[in-house]
Amino acid sequence: MALFTMLVMTALAIVRTRRLFATAMLSGVFSLLSAQLFVVLDAVDVAFTEAAVGAGISTVLMLGTLALTGRVEKRSTHSPFLPLLVVGMTGAVLIYGTLDMPNFGAADAPAQTHVSPDYLERSPHEIGVPNVVTAVLASYRGFDTLGETAVVFTAGIGVLFLISALRRRRETGDSGNDRKGA
Rank of each mutant, 00 (worst) to 15 (best):
Ile95Ser: 08
Arg122Asn: 11
Ala111Ile: 14
Val53Trp: 09
Ala106His: 11
Gly128Glu: 07
Gly88His: 03
Phe81Val: 02
Val87Asp: 00
Ser116Tyr: 08
Val132Ile: 15
Thr98Ile: 09
Gly97Phe: 06
Thr59Cys: 15
Phe104Asn: 12
Val60Trp: 03
Gly56Ile: 05
Leu84Ile: 00
Thr134Gln: 14
Gly54Arg: 01
Leu120Asp: 13
Gly54His: 04
Gly91Pro: 06
Met62Thr: 04
Val115Ser: 08
Leu82Arg: 03
Val40Gly: 03
Gln112Glu: 15
Thr69Lys: 07
Ala67Met: 09
Thr59Tyr: 04
Ala67Arg: 10
Val133Asp: 14
Gly56Asp: 10
Gly70Ser: 14
Gly128Asn: 02
Leu85Tyr: 00
Met62Asp: 08
Thr69His: 12
Met89Glu: 02
Ile95Trp: 11
Ala52Val: 14
Leu94Gln: 09
Thr69Ile: 02
Pro102Leu: 05
Met62Ala: 15
Glu126Pro: 00
Asn131Leu: 09
Thr49Met: 10
Thr65Phe: 13
Gly105Asn: 14
Ala43Val: 05
Ala92Ser: 10
Pro124Asn: 07
Arg71Cys: 10
Pro83Phe: 00
Leu41Ala: 15
Ala43Phe: 02
Gly56Pro: 06
Tyr96Thr: 12
Val129Cys: 11
Pro110Lys: 07
Arg75Pro: 06
Gly91Lys: 03
Phe104Gly: 12
Arg122Thr: 12
His125Val: 12
Tyr96Glu: 11
Asn131Ala: 11
Ser123Met: 11
Tyr119Asn: 09
Val133Tyr: 07
Tyr119Ser: 08
Ala109Tyr: 02
Ala52Thr: 13
Thr49Ile: 14
Glu50Asp: 06
Ala67Glu: 11
Gly56Ala: 07
Val40Thr: 07
Gly70Phe: 04
Met62Glu: 11
Thr134Glu: 15
Thr59Ala: 13
Val53His: 10
Phe104Tyr: 14
Glu121Val: 06
Val115Phe: 11
Thr65Pro: 01
Arg75Gln: 15
Leu84Asn: 04
Thr90Ser: 09
Leu82Gly: 00
Met62Leu: 14
Asn103Cys: 04
Pro117Thr: 11
Ser79Val: 01
Pro83His: 00
Leu120Ile: 06
Glu50Thr: 15
Thr134Pro: 03
Gly56Arg: 08
Ala135Tyr: 02
Leu84Pro: 00
Ala109Cys: 01
Ala107Arg: 03
Gly128Trp: 01
Pro117Ile: 06
Gly97Gln: 09
Gly105Tyr: 04
Ile57Cys: 03
Gly54Leu: 04
Leu41Tyr: 08
Asp45Tyr: 14
Gly64Ile: 05
Ala67Gly: 15
Pro102Gly: 05
Ala47Val: 07
Val53Ser: 09
Asn103Tyr: 10
Asp45Pro: 01
Val132Tyr: 04
Glu121Tyr: 10
Val129Lys: 13
Leu137Met: 12
Phe81Thr: 02
His78Leu: 09
Asn131Ser: 12
Pro110His: 02
Ser79Pro: 02
Leu66Met: 08
Asp100Arg: 08
Gly128Cys: 03
Ala52Trp: 05
Ile57Pro: 02
Leu61Gln: 13
Leu61Cys: 07
Gly70Met: 04
Pro102Met: 04
His125Phe: 09
Ser123Ile: 06
Arg75Asp: 14
Arg71Trp: 04
Gly56Trp: 01
